[in-house]
Design a binder for these strands. Structure first.
Lengths: 249, 249
DNA sequence: GCCGGCTATTTTGCATTCATTTTTTGTCCA
DNA sequence: TGGACAAAAAATGAATGCAAAATAGCCGGC
Protein backbone atom coordinates (compact mmCIF):
# COMPACT_ATOMS: atom_id res chain seq x y z
CA UNK A 1 0.00 0.00 0.00
CA UNK A 2 0.97 3.65 0.61
CA UNK A 3 0.42 6.59 -1.58
CA UNK A 4 2.61 9.64 -1.25
CA UNK A 5 0.17 11.23 1.14
CA UNK A 6 0.01 9.66 4.59
CA UNK A 7 -3.45 8.29 4.96
CA UNK A 8 -4.10 8.80 8.60
CA UNK A 9 -7.35 7.47 9.85
CA UNK A 10 -9.56 9.51 12.11
CA UNK A 11 -9.86 8.22 15.65
CA UNK A 12 -13.62 8.35 16.01
CA UNK A 13 -14.05 10.20 19.26
CA UNK A 14 -17.30 11.66 20.52
CA UNK A 15 -17.96 15.15 19.22
CA UNK A 16 -16.62 18.03 21.25
CA UNK A 17 -19.23 20.37 22.58
CA UNK A 18 -19.51 23.43 20.42
CA UNK A 19 -17.09 25.72 22.17
CA UNK A 20 -18.43 29.05 21.05
CA UNK A 21 -19.35 30.75 17.83
CA UNK A 22 -16.34 32.79 17.05
CA UNK A 23 -17.07 33.63 13.54
CA UNK A 24 -20.49 32.73 12.24
CA UNK A 25 -23.47 34.74 13.22
CA UNK A 26 -26.37 32.51 14.05
CA UNK A 27 -26.07 29.36 12.06
CA UNK A 28 -27.18 27.21 14.96
CA UNK A 29 -30.60 26.97 13.43
CA UNK A 30 -29.77 24.89 10.39
CA UNK A 31 -28.10 21.55 10.50
CA UNK A 32 -25.36 22.54 8.14
CA UNK A 33 -24.64 25.59 10.27
CA UNK A 34 -24.38 23.54 13.40
CA UNK A 35 -22.25 21.06 11.54
CA UNK A 36 -20.01 23.85 10.30
CA UNK A 37 -19.38 25.14 13.79
CA UNK A 38 -18.70 21.73 15.21
CA UNK A 39 -16.54 20.58 12.36
CA UNK A 40 -14.52 23.77 12.45
CA UNK A 41 -13.82 23.37 16.12
CA UNK A 42 -13.12 19.71 15.57
CA UNK A 43 -10.49 20.49 12.97
CA UNK A 44 -9.05 23.55 14.68
CA UNK A 45 -8.62 21.65 17.90
CA UNK A 46 -6.43 19.25 16.05
CA UNK A 47 -8.55 16.13 16.27
CA UNK A 48 -7.46 15.16 12.82
CA UNK A 49 -3.75 14.94 12.12
CA UNK A 50 -2.14 17.39 9.73
CA UNK A 51 -2.76 16.24 6.19
CA UNK A 52 -5.08 13.50 7.39
CA UNK A 53 -8.14 12.75 5.40
CA UNK A 54 -11.56 13.86 6.53
CA UNK A 55 -13.77 10.85 5.95
CA UNK A 56 -17.32 11.82 5.20
CA UNK A 57 -19.04 8.68 6.34
CA UNK A 58 -17.36 8.49 9.73
CA UNK A 59 -18.05 12.13 10.42
CA UNK A 60 -21.64 11.63 9.36
CA UNK A 61 -22.27 8.93 11.90
CA UNK A 62 -20.24 10.83 14.47
CA UNK A 63 -22.46 13.86 14.04
CA UNK A 64 -25.55 11.83 13.31
CA UNK A 65 -26.37 13.55 10.05
CA UNK A 66 -26.47 12.70 6.40
CA UNK A 67 -23.76 13.55 3.94
CA UNK A 68 -25.46 16.55 2.39
CA UNK A 69 -25.08 19.07 5.23
CA UNK A 70 -21.68 17.68 6.03
CA UNK A 71 -20.46 18.21 2.53
CA UNK A 72 -21.81 21.74 2.56
CA UNK A 73 -19.83 22.43 5.69
CA UNK A 74 -16.73 20.93 4.12
CA UNK A 75 -16.99 23.26 1.18
CA UNK A 76 -17.09 26.22 3.52
CA UNK A 77 -14.16 25.00 5.56
CA UNK A 78 -12.24 24.58 2.35
CA UNK A 79 -13.06 28.15 1.37
CA UNK A 80 -11.81 29.25 4.77
CA UNK A 81 -8.55 27.48 4.11
CA UNK A 82 -8.77 24.97 6.91
CA UNK A 83 -9.05 21.94 4.72
CA UNK A 84 -8.50 21.28 1.06
CA UNK A 85 -10.63 19.39 -1.37
CA UNK A 86 -8.92 17.03 -3.73
CA UNK A 87 -11.16 16.24 -6.68
CA UNK A 88 -12.65 12.79 -6.31
CA UNK A 89 -10.33 12.12 -3.44
CA UNK A 90 -12.06 13.80 -0.58
CA UNK A 91 -11.06 16.40 1.94
CA UNK A 92 -7.82 16.62 3.84
CA UNK A 93 -6.75 18.80 6.71
CA UNK A 94 -4.69 21.45 5.09
CA UNK A 95 -1.02 21.02 5.60
CA UNK A 96 0.61 24.34 6.26
CA UNK A 97 4.03 24.70 4.77
CA UNK A 98 6.53 26.96 6.43
CA UNK A 99 5.82 29.49 3.74
CA UNK A 100 2.10 29.29 4.46
CA UNK A 101 2.79 29.99 8.09
CA UNK A 102 4.96 32.95 7.30
CA UNK A 103 2.24 34.33 5.08
CA UNK A 104 -0.43 33.77 7.68
CA UNK A 105 1.60 35.42 10.41
CA UNK A 106 2.23 38.40 8.18
CA UNK A 107 -1.44 38.77 7.39
CA UNK A 108 -2.26 38.50 11.08
CA UNK A 109 0.37 41.14 11.69
CA UNK A 110 -1.24 43.36 9.11
CA UNK A 111 -4.66 42.91 10.62
CA UNK A 112 -3.49 43.63 14.14
CA UNK A 113 -1.56 46.57 12.89
CA UNK A 114 -4.75 47.84 11.33
CA UNK A 115 -6.68 47.09 14.48
CA UNK A 116 -4.26 49.19 16.49
CA UNK A 117 -4.55 52.05 14.06
CA UNK A 118 -8.31 52.00 14.17
CA UNK A 119 -8.39 51.46 17.90
CA UNK A 120 -6.55 54.73 18.40
CA UNK A 121 -9.49 56.51 16.82
CA UNK A 122 -12.18 54.91 18.89
CA UNK A 123 -10.87 53.42 22.08
CA UNK A 124 -12.20 54.74 25.38
CA UNK A 125 -10.18 55.41 28.48
CA UNK A 126 -12.02 52.60 30.20
CA UNK A 127 -10.96 50.16 27.53
CA UNK A 128 -7.38 51.26 27.86
CA UNK A 129 -7.58 50.78 31.58
CA UNK A 130 -8.92 47.28 31.02
CA UNK A 131 -6.04 46.50 28.72
CA UNK A 132 -3.63 47.88 31.29
CA UNK A 133 -5.12 45.51 33.81
CA UNK A 134 -4.58 42.63 31.46
CA UNK A 135 -1.07 43.85 30.88
CA UNK A 136 -0.21 43.76 34.57
CA UNK A 137 -1.86 40.40 34.89
CA UNK A 138 0.27 39.17 32.04
CA UNK A 139 3.33 40.64 33.65
CA UNK A 140 2.51 38.61 36.73
CA UNK A 141 2.35 35.46 34.66
CA UNK A 142 5.64 36.42 33.11
CA UNK A 143 7.28 36.81 36.48
CA UNK A 144 5.90 33.49 37.66
CA UNK A 145 6.99 31.83 34.42
CA UNK A 146 3.39 30.80 33.93
CA UNK A 147 3.40 30.19 30.21
CA UNK A 148 -0.19 29.10 29.93
CA UNK A 149 -1.55 32.07 31.81
CA UNK A 150 0.75 34.35 29.91
CA UNK A 151 -0.46 33.13 26.55
CA UNK A 152 -4.06 33.30 27.55
CA UNK A 153 -3.79 36.85 28.81
CA UNK A 154 -1.68 37.84 25.87
CA UNK A 155 -4.37 36.61 23.55
CA UNK A 156 -6.99 38.53 25.46
CA UNK A 157 -4.99 41.71 25.07
CA UNK A 158 -4.72 41.29 21.35
CA UNK A 159 -8.40 40.49 21.15
CA UNK A 160 -9.18 43.61 23.14
CA UNK A 161 -7.27 45.71 20.68
CA UNK A 162 -9.13 44.14 17.81
CA UNK A 163 -12.40 44.72 19.61
CA UNK A 164 -11.49 48.36 20.23
CA UNK A 165 -11.12 48.85 16.50
CA UNK A 166 -14.92 48.75 16.26
CA UNK A 167 -14.88 46.86 13.02
CA UNK A 168 -16.81 43.61 12.85
CA UNK A 169 -15.49 42.79 9.42
CA UNK A 170 -11.96 43.04 10.69
CA UNK A 171 -12.80 41.04 13.76
CA UNK A 172 -14.26 38.29 11.70
CA UNK A 173 -11.32 38.14 9.32
CA UNK A 174 -8.98 38.14 12.28
CA UNK A 175 -10.83 35.21 13.81
CA UNK A 176 -10.64 33.34 10.55
CA UNK A 177 -6.88 33.66 10.22
CA UNK A 178 -6.35 33.03 13.90
CA UNK A 179 -8.22 29.75 13.48
CA UNK A 180 -5.93 28.68 10.71
CA UNK A 181 -2.78 28.96 12.76
CA UNK A 182 -4.34 28.00 16.06
CA UNK A 183 -3.22 24.45 15.66
CA UNK A 184 0.36 25.60 15.39
CA UNK A 185 0.07 28.13 18.16
CA UNK A 186 -1.10 25.43 20.49
CA UNK A 187 1.23 22.67 19.52
CA UNK A 188 4.23 24.95 19.55
CA UNK A 189 4.78 27.07 22.60
CA UNK A 190 7.51 28.74 20.72
CA UNK A 191 8.02 31.67 22.98
CA UNK A 192 9.64 29.56 25.66
CA UNK A 193 12.90 31.13 24.75
CA UNK A 194 13.58 33.44 27.62
CA UNK A 195 15.06 36.22 25.62
CA UNK A 196 12.16 36.41 23.23
CA UNK A 197 9.78 36.39 26.14
CA UNK A 198 11.39 39.40 27.75
CA UNK A 199 11.46 41.14 24.42
CA UNK A 200 7.77 40.50 23.94
CA UNK A 201 7.06 42.06 27.32
CA UNK A 202 8.94 45.18 26.32
CA UNK A 203 7.04 45.34 23.07
CA UNK A 204 3.80 45.11 24.98
CA UNK A 205 4.87 48.04 27.11
CA UNK A 206 5.45 50.02 23.95
CA UNK A 207 2.08 48.97 22.59
CA UNK A 208 0.36 50.16 25.70
CA UNK A 209 2.26 53.40 25.63
CA UNK A 210 1.36 54.14 22.04
CA UNK A 211 -2.22 53.21 22.73
CA UNK A 212 -2.42 55.63 25.65
CA UNK A 213 -1.15 58.40 23.43
CA UNK A 214 -3.44 57.32 20.61
CA UNK A 215 -0.44 57.34 18.33
CA UNK A 216 -1.99 55.49 15.43
CA UNK A 217 0.88 55.19 13.00
CA UNK A 218 3.32 54.38 15.74
CA UNK A 219 1.09 51.73 17.26
CA UNK A 220 0.55 50.28 13.84
CA UNK A 221 4.30 49.92 13.39
CA UNK A 222 4.87 48.45 16.81
CA UNK A 223 2.11 45.91 16.45
CA UNK A 224 3.35 44.84 13.08
CA UNK A 225 6.86 44.41 14.34
CA UNK A 226 5.63 42.61 17.42
CA UNK A 227 3.78 40.05 15.34
CA UNK A 228 6.69 39.84 12.97
CA UNK A 229 8.91 38.86 15.84
CA UNK A 230 6.37 36.28 16.94
CA UNK A 231 6.48 34.93 13.46
CA UNK A 232 10.22 34.60 13.52
CA UNK A 233 10.12 32.86 16.87
CA UNK A 234 7.44 30.47 15.67
CA UNK A 235 9.27 29.56 12.51
CA UNK A 236 12.52 29.08 14.38
CA UNK A 237 10.74 26.91 16.86
CA UNK A 238 9.33 24.72 14.14
CA UNK A 239 12.68 24.39 12.44
CA UNK A 240 14.60 23.35 15.54
CA UNK A 241 11.99 22.68 18.18
CA UNK A 242 14.26 22.03 21.17
CA UNK A 243 15.28 24.14 24.09
CA UNK A 244 12.31 23.76 26.36
CA UNK A 245 13.08 20.30 27.64
CA UNK A 246 15.60 21.23 30.36
CA UNK A 247 13.60 24.14 31.69
CA UNK A 248 13.11 25.08 35.32
CA UNK A 249 9.51 24.97 36.60
CA UNK B 1 -48.68 41.74 -0.62
CA UNK B 2 -45.23 42.98 0.45
CA UNK B 3 -43.12 41.82 3.32
CA UNK B 4 -40.60 44.19 4.83
CA UNK B 5 -37.89 42.89 2.57
CA UNK B 6 -38.22 43.85 -1.08
CA UNK B 7 -38.68 40.63 -2.96
CA UNK B 8 -36.97 41.41 -6.20
CA UNK B 9 -37.18 38.68 -8.77
CA UNK B 10 -34.15 37.65 -10.73
CA UNK B 11 -34.22 38.56 -14.39
CA UNK B 12 -33.17 35.24 -15.81
CA UNK B 13 -30.43 36.18 -18.22
CA UNK B 14 -27.99 33.78 -19.84
CA UNK B 15 -24.98 33.02 -17.68
CA UNK B 16 -21.96 35.23 -18.11
CA UNK B 17 -18.84 33.49 -19.25
CA UNK B 18 -16.55 32.74 -16.35
CA UNK B 19 -14.37 35.82 -16.35
CA UNK B 20 -11.32 34.49 -14.59
CA UNK B 21 -10.51 32.62 -11.44
CA UNK B 22 -9.47 35.35 -9.11
CA UNK B 23 -9.60 33.49 -5.91
CA UNK B 24 -10.13 29.76 -6.13
CA UNK B 25 -7.34 27.55 -7.20
CA UNK B 26 -8.55 24.92 -9.62
CA UNK B 27 -12.12 24.19 -8.87
CA UNK B 28 -13.04 23.93 -12.53
CA UNK B 29 -12.97 20.18 -12.24
CA UNK B 30 -15.98 19.66 -10.01
CA UNK B 31 -19.39 20.94 -10.80
CA UNK B 32 -19.77 22.79 -7.56
CA UNK B 33 -16.45 24.51 -8.17
CA UNK B 34 -17.48 25.64 -11.60
CA UNK B 35 -20.79 26.73 -10.17
CA UNK B 36 -19.04 28.65 -7.42
CA UNK B 37 -16.94 30.60 -9.88
CA UNK B 38 -19.83 31.40 -12.13
CA UNK B 39 -22.20 32.30 -9.34
CA UNK B 40 -19.65 34.53 -7.71
CA UNK B 41 -19.08 36.45 -10.89
CA UNK B 42 -22.79 36.54 -11.47
CA UNK B 43 -23.38 38.13 -8.11
CA UNK B 44 -20.35 40.40 -8.12
CA UNK B 45 -21.25 41.74 -11.53
CA UNK B 46 -24.51 42.88 -10.07
CA UNK B 47 -26.90 40.66 -12.02
CA UNK B 48 -29.06 40.35 -8.96
CA UNK B 49 -30.28 43.55 -7.32
CA UNK B 50 -29.06 44.47 -3.87
CA UNK B 51 -31.02 42.51 -1.31
CA UNK B 52 -32.74 40.49 -4.01
CA UNK B 53 -33.39 36.87 -3.39
CA UNK B 54 -31.32 34.18 -5.03
CA UNK B 55 -33.81 31.58 -6.15
CA UNK B 56 -32.34 28.11 -6.23
CA UNK B 57 -34.55 26.61 -8.88
CA UNK B 58 -34.11 29.36 -11.43
CA UNK B 59 -30.37 29.36 -11.01
CA UNK B 60 -30.36 25.60 -11.34
CA UNK B 61 -31.97 25.66 -14.73
CA UNK B 62 -29.92 28.64 -15.71
CA UNK B 63 -26.74 26.74 -14.95
CA UNK B 64 -28.17 23.41 -15.97
CA UNK B 65 -27.33 21.64 -12.74
CA UNK B 66 -29.17 20.14 -9.82
CA UNK B 67 -29.69 21.86 -6.52
CA UNK B 68 -26.98 20.06 -4.60
CA UNK B 69 -23.89 21.69 -6.13
CA UNK B 70 -25.68 24.99 -6.31
CA UNK B 71 -26.50 24.93 -2.64
CA UNK B 72 -22.90 24.06 -1.84
CA UNK B 73 -21.77 27.07 -3.79
CA UNK B 74 -24.29 29.25 -2.00
CA UNK B 75 -22.91 28.21 1.35
CA UNK B 76 -19.45 29.24 0.27
CA UNK B 77 -20.62 32.57 -1.08
CA UNK B 78 -22.37 33.19 2.20
CA UNK B 79 -19.16 32.44 4.07
CA UNK B 80 -17.40 34.92 1.81
CA UNK B 81 -19.93 37.54 2.76
CA UNK B 82 -21.40 38.08 -0.68
CA UNK B 83 -24.80 36.72 0.12
CA UNK B 84 -26.61 35.89 3.30
CA UNK B 85 -28.63 32.82 4.16
CA UNK B 86 -31.87 33.33 5.98
CA UNK B 87 -32.97 30.12 7.68
CA UNK B 88 -35.72 28.45 5.71
CA UNK B 89 -36.02 31.56 3.62
CA UNK B 90 -33.30 31.18 1.10
CA UNK B 91 -30.36 33.31 0.05
CA UNK B 92 -30.29 37.01 -0.59
CA UNK B 93 -27.64 39.24 -2.05
CA UNK B 94 -26.10 40.88 0.92
CA UNK B 95 -27.16 44.43 1.42
CA UNK B 96 -24.24 46.52 2.52
CA UNK B 97 -25.09 49.23 4.98
CA UNK B 98 -23.02 52.37 5.07
CA UNK B 99 -21.32 51.02 8.13
CA UNK B 100 -20.48 47.79 6.31
CA UNK B 101 -18.89 49.79 3.55
CA UNK B 102 -16.85 51.83 5.96
CA UNK B 103 -15.64 48.65 7.59
CA UNK B 104 -14.82 47.03 4.29
CA UNK B 105 -12.90 50.05 3.08
CA UNK B 106 -10.93 50.14 6.30
CA UNK B 107 -10.04 46.49 6.02
CA UNK B 108 -9.00 47.01 2.43
CA UNK B 109 -6.94 49.93 3.60
CA UNK B 110 -5.29 47.73 6.18
CA UNK B 111 -4.53 45.04 3.65
CA UNK B 112 -3.06 47.45 1.15
CA UNK B 113 -1.12 49.10 3.88
CA UNK B 114 0.27 45.70 4.76
CA UNK B 115 0.94 44.95 1.13
CA UNK B 116 2.98 48.11 0.82
CA UNK B 117 4.97 47.26 3.89
CA UNK B 118 5.75 43.80 2.65
CA UNK B 119 6.39 44.99 -0.87
CA UNK B 120 9.18 47.20 0.41
CA UNK B 121 10.98 44.08 1.54
CA UNK B 122 10.70 42.17 -1.66
CA UNK B 123 9.97 44.36 -4.63
CA UNK B 124 12.44 44.41 -7.48
CA UNK B 125 13.57 47.45 -9.40
CA UNK B 126 11.87 46.05 -12.46
CA UNK B 127 8.58 45.88 -10.65
CA UNK B 128 8.96 49.43 -9.47
CA UNK B 129 9.67 50.50 -13.01
CA UNK B 130 6.53 48.73 -14.14
CA UNK B 131 4.49 50.52 -11.52
CA UNK B 132 6.05 53.81 -12.58
CA UNK B 133 4.92 53.09 -16.11
CA UNK B 134 1.41 52.48 -14.87
CA UNK B 135 1.62 55.65 -12.87
CA UNK B 136 2.48 57.75 -15.92
CA UNK B 137 -0.21 56.01 -17.88
CA UNK B 138 -2.65 56.87 -15.14
CA UNK B 139 -1.45 60.44 -15.13
CA UNK B 140 -2.24 60.56 -18.82
CA UNK B 141 -5.77 59.37 -18.15
CA UNK B 142 -6.03 62.00 -15.45
CA UNK B 143 -4.99 64.77 -17.81
CA UNK B 144 -7.45 63.57 -20.42
CA UNK B 145 -10.18 63.27 -17.82
CA UNK B 146 -10.54 59.65 -18.83
CA UNK B 147 -12.20 58.27 -15.74
CA UNK B 148 -12.57 54.76 -16.98
CA UNK B 149 -8.95 54.43 -18.01
CA UNK B 150 -7.89 56.11 -14.82
CA UNK B 151 -9.74 53.66 -12.63
CA UNK B 152 -8.54 50.69 -14.54
CA UNK B 153 -4.92 51.74 -14.34
CA UNK B 154 -5.32 52.76 -10.73
CA UNK B 155 -6.58 49.31 -9.92
CA UNK B 156 -3.67 47.72 -11.73
CA UNK B 157 -1.26 49.77 -9.66
CA UNK B 158 -2.81 48.65 -6.44
CA UNK B 159 -2.84 45.07 -7.64
CA UNK B 160 0.82 45.37 -8.54
CA UNK B 161 1.64 46.46 -5.04
CA UNK B 162 -0.28 43.55 -3.60
CA UNK B 163 1.49 41.21 -5.98
CA UNK B 164 4.86 42.62 -4.96
CA UNK B 165 4.13 41.70 -1.38
CA UNK B 166 4.77 38.07 -2.32
CA UNK B 167 2.03 36.77 -0.12
CA UNK B 168 -0.61 34.60 -1.71
CA UNK B 169 -2.69 34.52 1.44
CA UNK B 170 -2.84 38.29 1.47
CA UNK B 171 -3.58 38.40 -2.23
CA UNK B 172 -6.46 36.03 -1.80
CA UNK B 173 -7.94 37.91 1.14
CA UNK B 174 -7.55 41.14 -0.80
CA UNK B 175 -9.42 39.66 -3.76
CA UNK B 176 -12.18 38.51 -1.47
CA UNK B 177 -12.77 41.91 0.07
CA UNK B 178 -12.37 43.64 -3.26
CA UNK B 179 -15.14 41.43 -4.59
CA UNK B 180 -17.47 42.48 -1.84
CA UNK B 181 -17.25 46.17 -2.62
CA UNK B 182 -16.81 45.80 -6.35
CA UNK B 183 -20.48 46.37 -6.94
CA UNK B 184 -20.24 49.71 -5.19
CA UNK B 185 -16.99 50.68 -6.82
CA UNK B 186 -18.52 50.18 -10.21
CA UNK B 187 -21.88 51.71 -9.64
CA UNK B 188 -20.44 54.75 -7.95
CA UNK B 189 -17.71 56.60 -9.73
CA UNK B 190 -17.25 58.59 -6.64
CA UNK B 191 -13.95 60.16 -7.48
CA UNK B 192 -15.50 62.43 -10.06
CA UNK B 193 -14.96 65.28 -7.73
CA UNK B 194 -12.10 67.15 -9.25
CA UNK B 195 -10.44 68.08 -6.06
CA UNK B 196 -10.37 64.56 -4.73
CA UNK B 197 -9.01 63.36 -8.02
CA UNK B 198 -6.06 65.73 -7.92
CA UNK B 199 -5.47 64.78 -4.33
CA UNK B 200 -5.42 61.11 -5.24
CA UNK B 201 -2.81 61.78 -7.89
CA UNK B 202 -0.61 63.50 -5.34
CA UNK B 203 -1.03 60.60 -2.99
CA UNK B 204 0.01 58.24 -5.73
CA UNK B 205 3.15 60.27 -6.25
CA UNK B 206 3.92 59.88 -2.59
CA UNK B 207 3.25 56.16 -2.77
CA UNK B 208 5.66 55.77 -5.63
CA UNK B 209 8.25 57.84 -3.85
CA UNK B 210 8.06 55.81 -0.67
CA UNK B 211 8.16 52.62 -2.68
CA UNK B 212 11.31 53.70 -4.48
CA UNK B 213 12.96 54.38 -1.14
CA UNK B 214 11.58 51.12 0.29
CA UNK B 215 10.29 53.12 3.22
CA UNK B 216 8.03 50.46 4.66
CA UNK B 217 6.40 52.26 7.56
CA UNK B 218 5.96 55.42 5.59
CA UNK B 219 4.43 53.63 2.63
CA UNK B 220 2.17 51.77 4.99
CA UNK B 221 0.90 55.05 6.39
CA UNK B 222 0.44 56.66 3.01
CA UNK B 223 -1.44 53.71 1.60
CA UNK B 224 -3.72 53.55 4.58
CA UNK B 225 -4.49 57.23 4.36
CA UNK B 226 -4.97 57.00 0.62
CA UNK B 227 -7.59 54.29 1.01
CA UNK B 228 -9.12 56.14 3.90
CA UNK B 229 -9.64 59.13 1.69
CA UNK B 230 -11.15 56.92 -0.97
CA UNK B 231 -13.49 55.64 1.68
CA UNK B 232 -14.57 59.12 2.64
CA UNK B 233 -15.15 60.03 -0.98
CA UNK B 234 -17.16 56.90 -1.57
CA UNK B 235 -19.36 57.37 1.46
CA UNK B 236 -19.93 61.01 0.61
CA UNK B 237 -20.84 60.03 -2.89
CA UNK B 238 -23.38 57.55 -1.68
CA UNK B 239 -24.91 60.02 0.71
CA UNK B 240 -25.31 62.82 -1.80
CA UNK B 241 -24.56 61.35 -5.18
CA UNK B 242 -24.74 64.53 -7.27
CA UNK B 243 -22.12 66.79 -8.74
CA UNK B 244 -21.13 64.93 -11.87
CA UNK B 245 -24.09 65.94 -13.99
CA UNK B 246 -22.88 69.38 -15.12
CA UNK B 247 -19.38 68.25 -15.93
CA UNK B 248 -17.34 69.23 -18.95
CA UNK B 249 -16.42 66.38 -21.32
C1' DG C 1 -63.56 47.76 1.38
C1' DC C 2 -60.17 46.00 4.44
C1' DC C 3 -58.33 42.84 7.67
C1' DG C 4 -57.58 38.18 9.51
C1' DG C 5 -57.51 33.37 9.28
C1' DC C 6 -57.42 29.11 6.37
C1' DT C 7 -55.78 26.27 2.56
C1' DA C 8 -52.85 25.39 -1.62
C1' DT C 9 -48.55 26.03 -3.76
C1' DT C 10 -43.91 26.91 -3.67
C1' DT C 11 -39.50 26.69 -1.59
C1' DT C 12 -36.24 25.18 1.46
C1' DG C 13 -33.54 21.57 4.18
C1' DC C 14 -32.09 17.22 4.44
C1' DA C 15 -31.98 12.20 3.39
C1' DT C 16 -31.55 8.92 0.08
C1' DT C 17 -30.22 7.03 -4.25
C1' DC C 18 -27.47 6.50 -8.42
C1' DA C 19 -23.36 6.81 -11.28
C1' DT C 20 -18.23 7.28 -11.32
C1' DT C 21 -13.96 7.27 -9.62
C1' DT C 22 -10.66 5.74 -6.53
C1' DT C 23 -8.74 2.48 -3.45
C1' DT C 24 -8.18 -1.90 -1.78
C1' DT C 25 -7.97 -6.74 -2.09
C1' DG C 26 -7.01 -10.98 -4.28
C1' DT C 27 -4.92 -13.74 -7.65
C1' DC C 28 -1.91 -15.14 -11.10
C1' DC C 29 2.42 -15.44 -13.27
C1' DA C 30 7.33 -14.40 -13.79
C1' DT D 1 8.83 -13.62 -3.31
C1' DG D 2 7.32 -9.82 -5.67
C1' DG D 3 5.01 -7.24 -9.05
C1' DA D 4 1.20 -6.57 -12.25
C1' DC D 5 -3.32 -7.03 -13.42
C1' DA D 6 -8.24 -7.51 -12.32
C1' DA D 7 -12.18 -7.58 -9.68
C1' DA D 8 -14.44 -6.07 -5.48
C1' DA D 9 -15.24 -2.70 -2.17
C1' DA D 10 -15.56 1.80 -0.71
C1' DA D 11 -15.75 6.61 -1.24
C1' DT D 12 -16.92 10.62 -3.80
C1' DG D 13 -19.95 13.73 -6.78
C1' DA D 14 -24.26 14.79 -8.14
C1' DA D 15 -29.47 13.97 -8.79
C1' DT D 16 -33.69 12.89 -6.94
C1' DG D 17 -37.19 12.35 -3.36
C1' DC D 18 -39.57 13.64 0.73
C1' DA D 19 -41.00 16.23 4.96
C1' DA D 20 -41.34 20.75 6.97
C1' DA D 21 -41.55 25.51 6.62
C1' DA D 22 -42.83 29.64 4.30
C1' DT D 23 -45.29 32.19 0.89
C1' DA D 24 -49.23 33.17 -1.87
C1' DG D 25 -53.92 32.87 -2.78
C1' DC D 26 -58.64 32.70 -1.19
C1' DC D 27 -62.54 33.18 1.43
C1' DG D 28 -65.29 34.89 5.13
C1' DG D 29 -66.04 38.30 8.73
C1' DC D 30 -66.20 42.91 10.26
Amino acid sequence: MKSTIPDTGVPITPPTGNGGDRQENRHEASLHGETLLRLRDYVVEGNIPEGGRVPERQLCEMLGISRTPLREALKVLAAEGLIELLPNRGARVRQLSQRDLEELFDVMAGLESLAGRLACEAITDAEITAIEQLHYEMYGHYLHRDMHGYFQTNQRIHESIVAAARNETLKSAYANFAGRIRRVRYSANFARKRQRWAEAMREHEAILDALRRRAASELSDILFQHLRNKRTAAIEHLTEPREDAPASP
